[in-house]
Design a protein around this nucleic acid. Sequence first.
DNA 1: ACCCAGGGTCATA
DNA 2: TATGACCATGGG
Length: 196
Amino acid sequence: MFEIMVGAVLTQNTAWTNVERAIGNLKSLDLLSLDAMGRLGRKELAGLIRPAGYFNVKAQRLQNLCDFLQRQGGEASLSRMADGPLREALLEVNGVGPETADDILLYAFERPVFVIDAYTRRLFSRIGLVAGDESYEKLRSIFETGLESSVDLFNEYHALIVRHGKYICTKKPRCIECCIGRHCRYLSKNRQSAEP
DNA sequence: ACCCAGGGTCATA
DNA sequence: TATGACCATGGG
C-alpha cells in the first residue's frame, strides 16, 4: 500500500529500474512505512532516493504525501472514501498530479480509474483513435466510458499498453516500422523494462 | 554525445 | 489557458 504510493511518486518521468534502486535503499533500512518515513529529514530522504532522479523534488513530494496521510489518520480512513472525493483529496497534495493520483487510486486503493500516461497517449494517437492533444481528463473520460468499469480490466489494459508502448517511436509521429510492429531504427532495441 | 524514461510545479504572457 | 524552464539519475 504505502510502498505503492511511494513508487507512484518516484516513477514520475523516470524509468522503473531506477525507482527499484531507490525503493531498495528505503526497504533495506526498513523505511517503507508511513511512520518511519514520516520522521525522516528531507536531506536524508533525498540521499536515499537519489537513483530515482529529481531526488530533491521527490523527497519534498514524498514528505507532502506523508503529511497528508498522517493528517487523514492513515490509509484506513482513506479507504472508506468514495472514488471522487478521494481523488480530489490526493490532488490537493503538492507533487501529486492527475496521473500519480490515478496510479494510487488504481494500484493502491483498487478503484476503477483508468491511468493515462505518455504511452497511452502515444499509442492511441498513433493508431488514430485519438488526436493525442486532448486533456488528461478528456482521455480518461474516453477510456472510462468506453470500457467496463473494472479494476482488473483497467489493470491489465494498462499493463498491455505499457508493454507495447515501449516499442513505439517517439521521434516520428507516423513511423511505419513502429506501426506495423517492427523495431524501427530510431528505436533502441531493448528499452528498460520491468513493472511495479 | 544524444535521447529517453509510465510528471508536476511554477513563472510568465 | 497555454507554453517554457526546471528538476537529475541511469541505460541504450
